[in-house]
Design a protein around this nucleic acid. Sequence first.
DNA 1: CCACTCTTTTCCACTCTGCGGAAAACTGAT
DNA 2: ATCAGTTTTCCGCAGAGTGGAAAAGAGTGG
Lengths: 256, 256
Amino acid sequence: MSVQSVERALDVLEALADHGGEAGLSEIAARTGLPYGTIHRLLQTLLTRGYVRQESDRRYALGGALVRIGGAAERLVGAWAEPYLTKMVELSGETANMAVLEGDFVVYVAQVPSPRRLRMFAEVGRRVLPHSTAVGKVLLAGHPNAAAVFERTGLPRRTEQTITSIATMMTELSVVARQGYAMDLGEEESGVHCLAVPVADGSRVVAAMSVSGPVERVSALDRDELARGLRKIAGDFGAEVFGARSRPAENVRMRG
Amino acid sequence: MSVQSVERALDVLEALADHGGEAGLSEIAARTGLPYGTIHRLLQTLLTRGYVRQESDRRYALGGALVRIGGAAERLVGAWAEPYLTKMVELSGETANMAVLEGDFVVYVAQVPSPRRLRMFAEVGRRVLPHSTAVGKVLLAGHPNAAAVFERTGLPRRTEQTITSIATMMTELSVVARQGYAMDLGEEESGVHCLAVPVADGSRVVAAMSVSGPVERVSALDRDELARGLRKIAGDFGAEVFGARSRPAENVRMRG
DNA sequence: CCACTCTTTTCCACTCTGCGGAAAACTGAT
DNA sequence: ATCAGTTTTCCGCAGAGTGGAAAAGAGTGG
């Protein structure tokens, strides 16, 4: 049995979020179907706690307490990813990573290393330019400001394979957007191949997951089959973290 | 009259946030004083909506829905700052900006221009290196990884005044931390002075606010008095956005 | 300045939701 | 198997939360 008032308060917050972060009481009523008095009472409670603010025109907006508590939750995402990265290691035999965009850089936020003695390693916290990594290509494919990022950072050559032309890179990104995964064929590090897939919150790509290892081993894998498997795992992860949305859903209990 | 169940659900979320993002039910009980049954019922509601997750060891953690809704709130912070930046323009006569750290860069997220014909302008969205800006110094003063940032970015000379030595910069940052404001004395742009102060969420500096203008005008102002005034305004802003915390507080209604 | 319309806020009688203590179940250690 | 600590479930009850209606507020046009 759930707590109705809490469900309703979350409905109100999500109505605000869906309305660009700000709405009038009657707009919230339209989205939630709740009576004005009920909405008003819930909003007053959220107001006093800083989760909602009221503008000078009496409209309501999401509040600063959400920024703080959202930041606290964000710092946990890497830890949540580990069981899924473990599955990727099991599937491919290679080291699995998760990365996010931080400004113009790719930052590795989680990793599960391959059990093999010869393995790729990229320390968590490491930041690299996006152009020469598979995760970087995934994060920028479909990104409205991808060209601007490349204009700012340039595409410095890392290996003989590195793509150094913005035009070639934009073509590459449209391929990535179409096929749903990106490859790094020795572009960041000679002799290392990498395949990366998106982690999405709805239609927004919020992270990328990848597997990487020596070219001989990675190129021996069936690329499309590997991509399908990795996409499935990344999709499950995205659904677990972001999937619950205004409807009760069975939450997968993570097992150690 | 507030909604008790909603207050309690927020208490539970904040107890999790204060406990590193993750806690057992009895730890939440210790922090909130609520009965186990009550906490459990509230957690189940938050669980089904994705605002909380349960780990394999039955402990609870903040959930992905907070990441999403926190991000939605974060996109509004710049708009909230404008009335305070307006006050800073009124106080100083100069253009006022707010900036945040995004990776190794300073990004301007809000601005209110000076009414004068001769005025500073930095377009919202512009990203600059932190070493040669007052806001950058504020954001990195006291930051545990400040030296690492400078090692990555370097301190390229922008003007004759730019600080280009990491050692000198670290000394400068300790002065900034002590006096509570930073100056840019023509370091980013010749002939332009800038004074910046922190916006804090508790002890965390989350943004910086500044005023900047031609050296003749800015240096004619009483620096300490200006800093005091700007700190007061930035403090009010921080208190408004982040201040409400587990206790009902009068929320300042912003006026157009 | 007034009337109108739409929106937000307040009120209050009522009912059913949320409460919390106790019991049951679970988990890890011995 | 037992124990201790923790989490989950149950259920009678009372007061918290409800929602319709009225009051109040704000913006607009004449």
